[in-house]
Write a protein that binds this DNA or RNA. Structure first.
Length: 487
RNA sequence: GGCGCUAUGGUGCAACGGUUAGCACGCGGCCCUUUCAAGGCCGAAAUACGGGUUCGAUUCCCGUUAGCGCUACCA
């Protein structure tokens, strides 16, 4: 149960193999991430392979969404994407070779025979469940039936199958429990053969692509002995397997839409930083030694290890994800944050080209820096911080009710506008002194004036510290907004 | 139903035969304070249950229970 085999640097080859039957969900993203971390740490090769052998459920257009999600998370690959649907002859050849060697046989059973069984009875009561068929009656030669095109089934041998998993340790399965699974589906519409099954294509490809480490979800743990048997039949050494615990919803049932978003791209839309999402995902099912939680990509790559991956299914904890996001919003190097804020402002139509270089860019950078400790999601820059980037904003009623109720406020605001307009220097201390002087001569506490002013110049009761806000907005805008609010 | 995997606070992880069972998120309180965050400090909160093994079990073994997975000509 070590990261076993520490082969020579550069020889590690891993793959992420999604099937385009849906979007990139958080479980798949975590699998991709762990493969990527391992590949990058070992200076190995990461391969992207699209497993599109399910003609019924595949939607080719979904591939782009999966790729978008991976790119958003910064998970790149070195080879591919390869498509299994374009490699069909490989699987047919391999299946026929198994047939020729006797490790597989032709099955003339109608597909319907198996279509029922336990799988169909999944939602049914226990007593209604049909006994599973483990050994197909065709395995010892069933007279060929010209009316039925055969499928190719694997001839599961007697004995036990063992393998070692980098996460779960040594595993042993009794072959009596493994059914004679299909390798190649029967042909339809005149075709001689149908599509290969998952078990077949995955093993053929992992051999062909010289995959050294199969890192995937633990839902495949029970399938692994079948694949090990196939490797043996094809005279190949199985790779090292590393099964990852599954991600569950808050009620510990399988994560699904009713638990909230499961599509990675929805987190991007919501305005999570990819760095935060990645860090959160990395710590679901794995923890580095020590007590550090907040890790940069570099640390993640350095400290990752398959042997320290947990064997326990984990709950997707959204509050923790949000905490990571606020942490990254505050701690990310400003130059990494700026482009993301720029993209957000462009999306909302608030972006001004003058902010892309020179003094404008300097202002933009300082302003984002001022705003970032209070922002929770990227779109907050366009909504919550709107008054910093646009003059077109509303003054919220709650702010007026809360901070403008003192009858002295209008008079104070007018005096403040005059005092600020008269300033010849515009910086934090100048604004501070001028404001406090106005409060003092008006006979009120500075807090009253400060809170009232905040509402007047940014339209809401919550914003960064007032004098920093004034500096960010500039003298002209502050005075204008004050006079507009209290003519 | 069969087979398999797993089991530390509400959540994610530590402790890998001997600790006052640790850290983080969340939750509560206090401090700071110019609103709200952030930050600092304090607090409540866990070894699923029952048997073994052992001088000693969170840790090793068995059973129970629970959750999850597989049991398809899905992947």
């Amino acid at each position: 149960m070590t990261d076993s085999t520490n082969p020579a640097p550069g020889t590690i080859r891993v793959r992420f193999a999604p099937s385009p039957t849906g979007y990139l969900h958080v479980g798949g993203a975590r699998t991709a991430l762990f493969n990527w971390l391992y590949a990058r740490q070992q200076h190995g090769t990461m391969i992207l392979r699209v497993e599109d052998t399910d003609a019924e459920r595949n939607k080719p257009e979904l591939v782009q969404g999966i790729i978008d999600g991976l790119q958003w998370l910064g998970l790149d690959w070195d080879e591919g994407p390869f498509y299994q649907s374009q490699r069909l002859s490989l699987y047919v050849d391999a299946a026929q070779k198994c047939l020729a060697k006797g490790s597989a046989f032709l099955c003339y059973c109608a597909a319907e025979k198996y279509a029922g069984g336990d799988h169909a009875a999944d939602g049914a009561s226990a007593t209604e469940k049909v006994r599973r068929i483990v050994r197909c009656s065709c395995r010892d030669g069933k007279p060929s039936n010209p009316d039925v095109k055969p499928a190719i089934r694997f001839r599961v041998p007697a004995g036990k199958t063992v393998f070692s998993d980098a996460v779960f340790g040594d595993r042993e399965f009794d072959n009596e429990e493994i059914e004679d699974f299909v390798l190649l589906r029967s042909g339809k519409d005149g075709a001689e053969w149908g599509m290969p099954t998952y078990q077949m294509s995955v093993v053929v490809d992992d051999i062909d692509m010289r995959i050294t480490h199969v890192i995937r979800g633990a839902d495949h743990l029970s399938n692994t002995p079948k694949q090990v048997l196939l490797y043996r039949a094809m005279k190949s050494e199985p790779p090292i397997f590393a099964h990852l615990p599954l991600i569950l919803g808050a009620d510990k049932s399988r994560l699904s839409k009713r638990h909230g978003a499961t599509d990675v791209n929805m987190y991007r839309t919501e305005g999570f930083l990819p760095e935060a999402f990645r860090n959160f995902l990395a710590l679901l099912g794995w923890a580095p030694g020590g007590d550090e939680e907040f890790l940069r990509t570099k640390d993640l790559i350095e400290r990752f290890s398959l042997s320290s991956v947990s064997r326990t299914n984990g709950v997707f904890d959204r509050p923790k994800l949000e905490w990571f996001n606020t942490q990254y919003l505050q701690k990310l190097p400003i130059e990494d944050l700026l482009p993301q804020v720029e993209a957000e402002l462009k999306r909302s139509g608030l972006w001004k080209e003058e902010w892309s270089s020179g003094p404008g860019h300097e202002w933009f950078s300082k302003t984002v820096d001022l705003l970032r400790p209070r922002v929770r999601f990227l779109p907050d820059f366009s909504s919550w911080s709107r008054a910093f980037f646009s003059d077109d904003f509303e003054i919220e009623e709650a702010g007026k009710t809360k901070f403008w109720k003192d009858p002295k406020v209008p008079e104070l605001m007018r005096a403040l506008a005059d005092a600020l307009a008269a300033l010849t220097e515009w910086n934090h201390d100048a604004c501070d002194h001028a404001s406090r002087a106005v409060a003092e001569s008006g006979g009120v506490k500075a807090g009253l004036l400060i809170n009232a002013t905040r509402v007047a110049i940014v339209g809401q009761s919550v914003a960064p510290p007032l004098f920093d806000t004034m500096v960010a907005l500039g003298q002209e805008r502050v005075v204008r907004r004050l006079r507009a609010a209290f003519p």
